[in-house]
């Protein structure tokens, strides 16, 4: 195979808040079709790293490329529309006063057509149909017309994850998607991610504390501690790595 440009190329990213170095000179690449796990203790800078990559906050230094294009300074909405990058947040981020269906449709509506077309044209354009497919896949069918804010935590978490997939993204960054999700649903979520990954060749970066989930889903794992990468490798290698065991997995 020829050397294809990595889907995500993060180079020397640093970010401090006051005296705290949240992310300290982190570099890594993610190749097409990979599912990369990002693990590390609380406060190790995982979410901050996501925010820096996706334009929610600006790193102090370093650069980020998606498919060879520099993305720093790009607005999250452009990142999502032009480069097909989607993310979820660690905190629940659904639209509570909108129905489940509307939440999902919103996640896809900005990705086709023009701004004016979205006002003047057909207001649906096949969105409901693809939203319904996604809703069925995440087993939220019985909740389709409920307010998102009336769902249970786990249900909202699933909806949150489902929204990231509506626009058919190339690269998806998930911040703790499994938190609060029950075991069967977790299997389903894992299955959904790997199926989507296999069928569309899309790439994932997943932050997760649930080791079972990470180890069985990911092809490669990165371990962060105090803002810096302390280990990297296959799930087996990481599990066996004494540095990781000491810093994170415990004795």
């Amino acid at each position: 195979m020829t050397a294809e440009a990595p889907v995500l190329d993060v180079r020397n990213i640093s970010k401090s808040f006051g005296g705290i170095k949240a992310v300290d000179d982190v570099s890594f690449t993610v190749n097409r079709g990979e599912i990369l796990g990002l693990i590390g203790p609380n406060g190790s800078g995982k979410s901050t790293l996501f925010n820096c990559i996706l334009g929610q906050s600006r790193p102090d230094k370093g650069k980020v490329e998606v498919n060879g294009k520099p993305v720093l300074g790009m607005r999250p909405c452009d990142l999502s529309k032009r480069l097909g990058v989607a993310r979820t947040f660690q905190m629940l981020q659904v639209f509570p006063q909108m129905t489940v269906l509307d939440n999902i449709i919103l996640a896809g509506q900005e990705h086709s057509g023009t701004m004016l077309g979205r006002l003047m044209g057909a207001s649906d354009a096949g969105l409901t149909e693809s939203a319904d497919r996604l809703i069925a896949f995440f087993r939220l069918g019985h909740l389709r017309d409920e307010l998102a804010g009336s769902l249970s935590y786990g249900q909202q978490k699933l909806l949150d994850a489902a929204m990231a997939f509506m626009a058919g993204p190339q690269l998806v960054l998930l911040d703790e998607p499994a938190g609060g999700v029950n075991l069967t649903m977790l299997e389903h979520l894992k299955d959904r991610l790997s199926t989507y990954n296999r069928e569309n060749g899309s790439t994932f970066v997943v932050i997760e504390h649930n080791m079972e989930f990470v180890m069985s889903l990911c092809t490669r794992i990165l371990v962060l501690a105090n803002g810096a990468i302390i280990a990297e490798g296959s799930p087996e290698e990481v599990r066996a790595n004494p540095i990781v065991i000491e810093a994170y997995l415990g004795s």
Partner: peptide
């Protein structure tokens, strides 16, 4: 409802 999420979804 949530400007940050809306923005990350392409709005």
């Amino acid at each position: 409802e949530n400007p940050i999420r809306a923005n990350s979804l392409g709005v």
